[in-house]
Amino acid sequence: MKTINFKKLTFILLISAATISSCKKHDDDHDDDHNHDENELITTVAIQFVDTISKDTLFFNWSQPGGPGSAISIDTIVLKPNVKYVAYTSILDESKTPVFDVSEEIKADANNHRFVYTPTNANLYVKILDFDTHTPPIELGLSFEASALGVSSSTGNLNVVLKHYTVSSPKTGGLGNGSTDIEVNFPLVIK
C-alpha cells in the first residue's frame, strides 16, 4: 500500500476534531436565571357549606400556601345540629396569579377521581351528590349533603381524602385502589 501522506491526514483530522469539539449542545430550553413558576402545586382545600333553611353560606379553608413543610392554616368547621347543609368542595392553587381552580379539571376527569369524607367523633352524616360516568355511576364528591343528627353538640374531625385512579389501578376496583392526592383534616364542631 502506498505510503500515507501523514501531513494531509493530520490536517484533515485536526479540522474534524476542531469541528466536533466546537459543537455545543442546545441549551435554549434551560435558562437558569428564569424562575420556573410553572410547577404543579395544590395549596388549598376550600369547602363551602350552604344552610338549606337560612340560605347562609359558611366558608372553611385548609391552606398551605408555602408548599410542603410550611405553615398550614386550618379553619374549624362549625355547623348547627339538625340542619341539612349542601356543601361544595373546591381545590385551588393559590400560589399562582390568578388563582388556579383545579376542581374543573377534577370534574372533567371524574372517572379517575373520588372524594371521601370521613367524620370522626361527631355525628355528621355525609351523602355524596355528584357521580361520574361509569356504568353504574360511582361517586365523585365535589358536592355533598351534610347534616348533624341527634346530639346537640360534639367536637371531632372531618377527614377529607381525594383519591386518584389510573388505568393500572382503576376506580372500579374500589377504595383500596389508586393513590392519595389530597388528605387533610378539619377540626369539626357541632353546636
Partner: peptide, 11 residues
C-alpha cells in the same frame, strides 16, 4: 413526618 396537602410523608 412532613405535613402536606397530600397527607403525611416520612422526612
Amino acid at each position: 413526618p412532613i405535613l402536606t396537602i397530600r397527607g403525611a410523608f416520612p422526612a
